[in-house]
Design a binder for these strands. Structure first.
Length: 572
RNA sequence: GGCGUUAUAGCUCAGUUGGUUAGAGCGAACGACUCAUAAUCGUUAGGUCGGUGGUUCAAGUCCACCUAACGCCA
């Protein structure tokens, strides 16, 4: 059996994600996971919250809570929203877990032993009042160039001149406002990625089947300017994974933590261990997914992410894996996405512009969003969300084409026969033609899904739905019924079975509606239609069903107008 | 300022290694049907593929420059 390991870029703990974040990683990853499970593969689908770093500390301070408590609460909120969006993670972990601390320290120790860590001494501003070192952008003062009062340590946003923190006149902490600052000498660890440049380059080059978006970004970082640069992997913060050499202390690094981008991808592995630990399984259970010496050789590992995450997944994280000298699994395929824009501009977390995951679920069920987002996923270039487009897609595709098909078939059967699969008649030429058509379309759908061509998959699925309406329109059972009720029964029998087939095929996109369709058809049979003719006979003569409620309600013009207004600026 | 991305029918987007009359869905017009969430099905009309020049027997598809929008960086 094929074993597929799927990871979605892990969302940052600081706040609820917007729809652009969702469609860039978690949602398409979920589509792929659900599809492969449906086809009988063994799937491990991993995601987590990315919890370390200064933004988390500041957000916690703003909320008046200890950072660990803040993260724990935010993790629960994100887990709940993910669940309500139907994101079917096998485990939704936390980068602040003990498993990740141990593993991150382990990797650092291995990298040190293999000669891929360099210790560098730097000067950095320390705030006595805050009791911490300050990153450049958290120091404010007066710009020596233009006199602007709110210049930051890295740049003056008024005159755009780049600065060093020591250039500022009357510097102060952006966190506390304190002016009790001093420059201290501090030591940091650098990951010597440059030593692995050729190895990384050869590895990327070998991935000829990866999307251009992925490889071009990686190549740019490898060859731009002086080539791949070493990266600092430690910070002077309290909130993070303490710097250690495996289990041992690291001399001179006391009180420091690893940089969030070092420990975050390692969480993919650690979250799988969290999964095993939560189920009382031994180490073999998770190592068989990640260690090529313990069974992961045959695992197909696919990562999903937005384009901003590509450098870390094509270079930094692989450098960590390669540099460890241990047989960890490298990614086999990276599916990256462009950005989704919102109504003529960007989604903005800080301005509250656009629709956020919790708000989306307040106004409509998850399937509506899943369908629109996936069928418009920004695969080849940035794409755009507009309320008009959303309204017409939902109304036309979901309500009119699919929802109405279910409705017209079940209601017709109920009124002319009974709420059960009717008996009589036989399948003829037209039915065979439909089966042939559906077979072709289903095979095309499978090909697109396997290739992670999200939009093409959605278009193919829609055309499979439409085929049912085309068939009904042509054979017109409402007319047939008047002259040949037996034949009308055969036509409706086929159409009822088609509803089950649609539920199975559509489940990766719209799992909730799919479950409603199966429930309405009173069946638990989710077998994949490998053979369409057989699949259209699964519900036997006499099988009872219930006429389902309206599957998808339409979006009215009033609603559309109201929502466009509501989400245009400030988050409520 | 440097680097990069994008620019295809009214809208959202496809267009493989350059090769016959540039495609889909929505929207529009017309027609059919009436079982159904005023749903469905069919037909038709819309584009000199941002602009200019070039390479080629042949360019939306390669090259140069220009314009516009956007993004990243220092």
């Amino acid at each position: 059996m094929t074993r597929i390991l799927i990871t979605s870029a892990i969302p940052y703990i600081n706040g609820i994600k917007h729809l652009g974040n969702l469609v860039g990683s978690q949602l398409p990853a979920d589509l792929y996971a659900r599809y492969n499970r449906a086809r009988g593969s063994e799937v491990m689908f991993i995601c987590a919250t990315d919890e370390h770093g200064t933004p988390a500390e500041l957000a916690a301070a703003k909320a008046g809570k200890p950072v660990d408590e803040f993260c724990a609460e935010m993790h629960e909120i994100q887990a709940d929203i993910a669940n309500r969006f139907g994101l079917s993670f096998d485990h939704f972990g936390r980068s602040s877990s003990d498993q990740n601390k141990k593993l991150t320290q382990h990797f650092a120790g291995r990298l040190k032993a293999e000669g891929y860590i360099e210790e560098v001494s730097e000067k950095q501003v320390y705030s006595n009042a805050d009791g911490r070192f300050l990153p450049d952008r958290y120091i404010e003062g007066t710009c020596p160039n233009c006199g602007y009062d709110g210049a930051r340590g890295d740049q003056c946003e008024n005159c755009t001149k780049q600065l060093d923190p020591t250039d500022l006149i009357d510097p102060r902490s952006a966190i506390s406002g304190s002016t009790d600052l001093e420059v201290r000498e501090t030591k940091h660890l650098y990951l010597r990625q440059s030593k692995l440049k050729d190895q990384l380059d050869a590895w990327i080059t070998s991935k000829g089947d990866w999307p251009v978006l992925t490889t071009s970004i990686a190549k740019k970082w490898l060859h731009d300017g002086d080539g791949l640069r070493d990266r600092g992997i430690t910070r002077d913060l309290n909130w993070g994974v303490p710097v250690k050499d495996g289990d041992a202390e690291w001399a001179g690094m006391e009180g420091k933590v690893f940089y969030v981008w070092f420990d975050a991808p390692i969480e993919y592995i650690a979250a799988t261990k969290e999964w095993a630990d939560a189920r009382g399984l031994d180490d073999d259970a998770w190592e068989s997914w990640w260690r090529t010496d313990k069974g992961a050789e045959d695992v197909q590992y696919v990562q999903f992410m937005g384009k901003d995450n590509v450098p870390f997944h094509t270079l930094s994280f692989p450098a960590t894996i390669m540099g460890s000298g241990e047989p960890w699994k490298l990614v086999d395929y990276i599916k990256s996405f462009n950005y989704l824009n919102y109504d003529g501009g960007q989604f903005s977390t800080s301005k509250g512009r656009g629709v956020f995951m919790d708000q989306a679920l307040e106004i409509l069920p998850a399937d509506y969003w899943r369908w629109w987002l996936l069928s418009h996923a920004p695969e080849t270039s940035d794409s755009e969300f507009t309320w008009e487009n959303f309204q017409s897609s939902v109304n036309k595709d979901l309500a009119d084409v699919l929802g109405n098909f279910v409705s017209r078939v079940t209601k017709f059967c109920n009124s002319k026969f009974s709420p059960a699969v009717p008996e009589g008649g036989t399948y003829g030429e037209r039915e065979q033609a439909l089966i042939a058509d559906l077979t072709t379309k289903t095979r095309a759908y499978e090909t697109h899904m396997a290739a992670m061509d999200v939009r093409k998959s959605a278009a193919e699925l829609r055309s499979i739905w439409a085929a049912g309406n085309e068939y009904l329109q042509e054979v017109a059972p409402w007319s047939t019924f008047k002259t040949d009720p037996e034949q009308a029964a055969a036509q409706i029998r086929l159409a009822l079975n088609l509803i089950r087939v649609y539920a199975v095929l559509s489940a990766p996109f719209i799992p909730t509606a799919s479950a409603q369709m199966l429930s309405g058809m009173n069946t638990l049979d989710m077998s994949w239609p490998d053979d369409l003719e057989a699949a259209l006979g699964v519900l036997p003569v006499g099988h009872e069903f219930t006429v389902p409620e309206v599957l998808f309600a339409k979006i009215s013009d009033d609603q559309r107008t109201e929502w466009a207004e509501r989400f245009s600026g400030t988050r409520d």
